[in-house]
Nucleic acid binder design. Sequence first.
DNA 1: GTACTAATTGAAGTGCGGTTTAAGTCAAGC
DNA 2: GCTTGACTTAAACCGCACTTCAATTAGTAC
Lengths: 143, 143
Amino acid sequence: MTTGMSIGAIARSAGIAPSAIRYYERSGLLPKPARRSGQRRYTAETVGRLRIIQVARAAGFTITQTRTFLSGFSGATPPAARWRALAAQKIEELDLLMTQIARMRLVLKSSFQCGCLRIEDCERAILAAGPREGDAGRDEPCA
Amino acid sequence: MTTGMSIGAIARSAGIAPSAIRYYERSGLLPKPARRSGQRRYTAETVGRLRIIQVARAAGFTITQTRTFLSGFSGATPPAARWRALAAQKIEELDLLMTQIARMRLVLKSSFQCGCLRIEDCERAILAAGPREGDAGRDEPCA
DNA sequence: GTACTAATTGAAGTGCGGTTTAAGTCAAGC
DNA sequence: GCTTGACTTAAACCGCACTTCAATTAGTAC
């Protein structure tokens, strides 16, 4: 604690490989940490940072987008225009993704509840609102 | 007219590259279509199939998972055990993903509304509901 | 027949997100 | 001193999901 955590320790506590952490550092997602005789020393703060990175990645951010995401918070600077645009665009993407996932979930759920779903039903269920159009409230309970 | 659609036509109408369609065929996501003098001929049905594939991919299914997903509906066969297990597991993944995306969306939204969010606030917001992080299928049997 | 376009193939290439490898450094314990 | 184990680096490698390439063929227009 007083000495800081090694890369192995922080990797274990974040459930991630040391190689990934080095890769994130190389990619500019993590700041270069202090070193003690050549070895990286991290604080607990970095664990939180790693978790955000994991969530961002799981939400579909690329490494580059995640870097922009993180740098949107840099210091006390209010989000720059570039960051704002990215955020707005990403929100739209996330909304679309959410509806698609919701539909996919519905199909998965109903398909192994009723056991009689055919692929044509699936197409209708998933594609009900079209891949682009924001159709409201057409949640079909197939089961 | 009843000659069916060319790969170029179906690619345009699905908003996807012909090369991707051939790749899907190779990967077993699409059945081998009829041929007229060597060239693939598709029906409109395949457009729907392609859309499902796109949604499945967008929801995070790999090609292999998508194949299992599609084959879960094969013929009139009720979903097999393998498919059911995949579906159950995928639903859990999707649920986790949904909550994470919702949080991410919230953070994105609030961050460019108030313009004063710091990264520590972000960590608290995103990580609020606990670090139940998704699996990456990292268990590989050494066979 | 000639030209042009869109299709065909297998093989090789690409970009992403890491992982693995090879060779070496450091601190501790025997 | 020697060994052990966790770390360091650059560079090579990997799997995925496609894309691109090169050479060829089929159909249509003139």
